[in-house]
Design a protein around this nucleic acid. Sequence first.
DNA 1: AAATGTGAAGTTGTTCACAGCT
DNA 2: AGCTGTGAACAACTTCACATTT
Lengths: 213, 213
Amino acid sequence: MSDSKKPIKPEIPRKAIYRLSIYMRCLTRLQGNGIETISSEALAKAAGVKSTQLRKDLTYFGQFGTRGLGYDVEQLQAMISNLLGTSSLQPVILVGVGNLGSALLTYRGFEQEGFEVIAAFDQIPEAARKRTRFKEIRPMADMDEIVQRAGVRMAILAVPNLVAQEVANQLVKAGIVGILNFAPIMLEVPEDVTVNNVNLAIELENLSYFIQT
Amino acid sequence: MSDSKKPIKPEIPRKAIYRLSIYMRCLTRLQGNGIETISSEALAKAAGVKSTQLRKDLTYFGQFGTRGLGYDVEQLQAMISNLLGTSSLQPVILVGVGNLGSALLTYRGFEQEGFEVIAAFDQIPEAARKRTRFKEIRPMADMDEIVQRAGVRMAILAVPNLVAQEVANQLVKAGIVGILNFAPIMLEVPEDVTVNNVNLAIELENLSYFIQT
DNA sequence: AAATGTGAAGTTGTTCACAGCT
DNA sequence: AGCTGTGAACAACTTCACATTT
């Protein structure tokens, strides 16, 4: 599970924001199939939610449909993409090129979704280079300069637990305001910084609970 | 975000189960530091939750503390591990050794948490072998046999969207009852199968929303 | 007629306040 | 005295029912 602790706009449920991403993927697929208009009923089904929820989610941000008709696929897609801030390519850095970090660098899936990993950082860049083909591996000391020069606002944190807080502090100091944290600890960050936690082991453990006979 | 749709015991909030995993990690760390007893207050702080929530979460499963004293670290750890079904090593398979799949195989972090990836499957095993050093890469056709022989109950699904549902069906048929799904689609599965969804792109997108100025 | 937008009702999850052990 | 366990109050989120628009 992932988990952020930033309700900037407290009126809007955090889960609603996650669902926007899902709606957007569905819309992109529909667009690819040449479908121009869709009802909340049909889109909700594709997204795996109730149609009332979809409509409620959208109205947090405005009115985008036409009664009696439905939603314009392209227009709604553009609107959501814009809301999420993914309508332009966003630079991201990755910190910690160990086991998981190098795995994430290998996975080029972020690029397809509007994020570009412009640099990776590791305490021992030479060792890190042996684990990946990714070229831009830098020592931690270069972080400030690169973040500032490229105007990076988001970071993927994949360092060992013991140093996670310390590195998070460094990230914040460099100007990062969004952290995707893979370390299984609660990071303490200033109010204006958002942390989303992802932990694959916890997801497996959670499954493990539910599949018990 | 992760997301399962299986409330076998509807009284217990799903989020409470996730939190159990977090408590367990904290307890393991405390145990390593030689701490024998801890109050709900202190453990809750380490886990990043309110103490009342921790106590409520635990009482869904029974009474484990001593009033006036707190909880026995080792005992509580063992209890939660047992509840989650992670007290013994659990075999897992991975399906789809593409970009993400091979990244996940590279990441050996599951092993450290009580899960062993005993085999990986791909439609084109020869091509998949070029992406990873993991040895046990099999054609999809071998799935049934391996799952049954090893008594595997959990699978990590990292195939392209277009075939995700189809492969999920095959997994279910083979006897898998827990799926960690990385494809950004809602899988349709029988009631007795649990799906947890993880989508890294969605997590980044969600961050992207919150860091907007 | 068809489908959206939305206040109100319902449900689920969290926190409080305090009773009850040790 | 200190800290857990828990019903009751509260808050957040979801669903319903229906008025409204095309």
